[in-house]
Simulated scan of single mutants.
Amino acid sequence: MLTRMKTNSLILCSALITACASSPTGRNQLILFSDVQMSQLGTQSFEQMKKQEKISTDELTNAYVQCVTKSITSHVPPQPEFTDWEVVVFDSDQVNAFALPGGKIGVYTGLLKVAKTPDQLATVIGHEIAHVLADHSNERMSQSQLANTGLQITSVAIGASDYAQYQNVTMAALGLGVQYGVILPYGRTQESEADIVGLELMAKSGFDPYQSIELWKNMSKASGGSQPPELLSTHPSHSTRISELTAKANALPAYNAKRPVCSAP
């Protein structure tokens, strides 16, 4: 029994050593899952959402969202597990958008009532894509698996062949709801990091990074000020977010002067 415990401890230590990674801003990350596993998980979850959510068929809205998104993804480095980003517009009043591993992007029509310009929509799209590029889902899932299920899942995460056996567990750890694939909030550190990387992406794509500040002013108005205190929330407060985005926008070099032409519906 003691020998087995020692063996398990060695396996765990080995997994942790080999799972160390750095985020785009240089922050240390725990990454236990492979790009292939995350891509498969994101694709499966996205297909589930497309079956259960109402997809918008409005041609102008779809063309607009596709235009903004493609303007950004054209400046994203090639990804190892997919070649194209799939974008779907969901017909819903939710003020939301998301991106999943595997290059899957969802935008809710309710967001367009708050992100009122192409630049503001680009702020959100860039932010969500940044979550994928920074492996935030993998990081969150790795932390959850290590804390909740121990070595058994860890062994799967580092290459065991029976990953499918634990699919439901990993889905839950990723924060994907069984019914609608709703993503649970990221932590404040990950949100702030996605703000920084997303701002760089939108600026490279020709969008005005200062419009990110206007977006969060709109978000603040839309919430009616009904946001919990920052220390009780997983997200930065609106005021903190606006302050950080202002500082980052001021530090950016002149953004791409070749602005995309995307017409809002």
Rank of each mutant, 00 (worst) to 15 (best):
A160M: 12
D58N: 14
E47N: 13
A222I: 10
W216L: 05
A173N: 14
G198F: 04
V68W: 01
N28T: 08
S71H: 04
K204Y: 03
A172E: 06
P209Q: 01
C20A: 12
L232W: 11
I72K: 00
I105G: 09
N250A: 15
D91C: 06
I183L: 04
V68N: 00
S22H: 10
V88S: 13
Q94T: 03
Y186F: 14
Q143G: 15
F46Q: 03
C13P: 04
T61A: 10
A21N: 13
Y108D: 02
A147V: 07
P24Y: 03
Q66S: 03
C13H: 12
G106Y: 12
E214Q: 12
I153F: 02
F98K: 00
A134K: 02
E81Y: 07
T189C: 02
A249W: 00
M171A: 07
N168Y: 07
K113F: 06
E214S: 05
C20M: 11
M219K: 10
S14E: 12
E53Y: 10
Q120S: 07
S142T: 08
N250F: 02
Q120G: 03
M171H: 05
Y163W: 11
F98A: 00
I11M: 15
G102Y: 11
N168P: 01
M202T: 08
W85S: 02
P78Q: 14
T57G: 13
P260N: 07
P78W: 09
E81V: 08
Y255L: 05
Y186I: 03
G102I: 06
A99L: 06
L30V: 11
C262H: 05
G159H: 13
H238A: 13
P78N: 13
G224M: 08
K51C: 09
I105V: 15
V124K: 01
S243V: 08
N8C: 12
T109L: 02
L16H: 13
F46P: 01
L12K: 12
P185N: 08
M1K: 08
A19E: 05
I17D: 14
M219S: 10
K204E: 11
A21C: 08
T117V: 07
L41A: 15
T7L: 15
Q143W: 03
P80Y: 08
K113A: 13
M5H: 13
I72C: 03
A173C: 04
P265V: 09
L111P: 00
T25V: 07
L111V: 04
G42F: 13
C20D: 04
K258S: 09
A194Q: 06
S92R: 00
E59L: 09
G187I: 04
T3P: 05
V95L: 11
V36H: 10
P253G: 08
L146Y: 14
S45P: 04
A130C: 01
R4E: 15
K221N: 14
Q94D: 01
G103W: 02
M141C: 06
P101L: 09
